[in-house]
């Protein structure tokens, strides 16, 4: 069987792949930003002394983590409008990915919270910081620094999962690659280039995150 490589047709549409990459990154950034807030709230709830809050956090994590992301995305895009919540495809995907990443980050942050030394928290309380002030000024920064590597991994994971947005025709990298594939029949070339872009983006993100980790003092 003969297959001669011709990248020309793919390069001709390279700008579409790049814009797809940018859309995927933007979706991941928005989703992880919202997911970080959700994860922080849920993690604090998960370790709070109030049982209803703990249950709520547990329910959130259990529900979301036991759903495939694709199902969550389809629910958000097709099912929500049925009950009067109409989101466009970007909003529904970003929302679904935010919920999804939030559930994973809840576990990351919960572990981070448990890693904050009890004595340090008591030191904050002993100089008169309220519980809220202690959480904001002491617990959260320590926990975030400890959670930074996991936060980075989650971000990379969510960026790769942005390919699932292709299922609801969000023109991100996978969606564009599939279109180019269909238009040009350059199967190997298209998917090789798309894969190269995913890998390159992830390597760059990982390097940036390592740089960020180094900027913060080690404890």
């Amino acid at each position: 069987m003969e297959y001669s490589l011709h990248f020309g047709a793919v390069w001709a549409s390279f700008d579409r792949l790049l814009s797809g990459l940018a859309i995927g990154l933007a979706l991941a950034v928005v989703a992880v930003a919202i997911g970080t807030v959700l994860g922080l709230l849920a993690a604090f709830a998960a370790v709070s002394p109030y049982r209803p809050l703990r249950s709520l956090a547990g329910l959130y994590v259990a529900l979301i983590r036991n759903l495939p992301l694709l199902v969550l995305v389809l629910l958000a895009y097709f099912a929500l409008p049925q009950i009067g919540i109409a989101l466009d495809k970007y909003q529904s995907f970003a929302g679904a990915l935010a919920l999804y990443s939030g559930a994973y980050l809840t576990e990351v942050f919960r572990a981070g919270l448990l890693s904050v030394p009890k004595g340090v928290i008591e030191a904050a309380r002993s100089i008169g910081l309220t519980r809220l002030q202690t959480n904001v000024s002491v617990v959260a920064p320590i926990m975030l620094r400890n959670a930074l590597p996991s936060l980075g991994n989650t971000f990379i994971g969510m960026f790769k999962d942005s390919s699932i947005a292709a299922a609801i025709a969000v023109p991100e990298l996978t969606f564009e690659a599939r279109k180019i594939n269909v238009d040009t029949f350059r199967v190997i070339e298209t998917w090789t280039v798309a894969s190269g872009l995913y890998i390159a983006a992830c390597v760059v993100i990982a390097a940036l995150l390592r740089g960020l980790e180094r900027r913060f003092p080690k404890f």
Binding site: G119, V120, I142, F216, P217
Partner: peptide, 29 residues
Amino acid sequence: SRQRAMTGMVFQSFNLFPHLSAAGNVMLG
């Protein structure tokens, strides 16, 4: 919290805030 602020406590294990400088530790309260 208000009443705790009236007494200072120094712990066996220091318990400094690891993310803050020496000055930051003193300044937080």
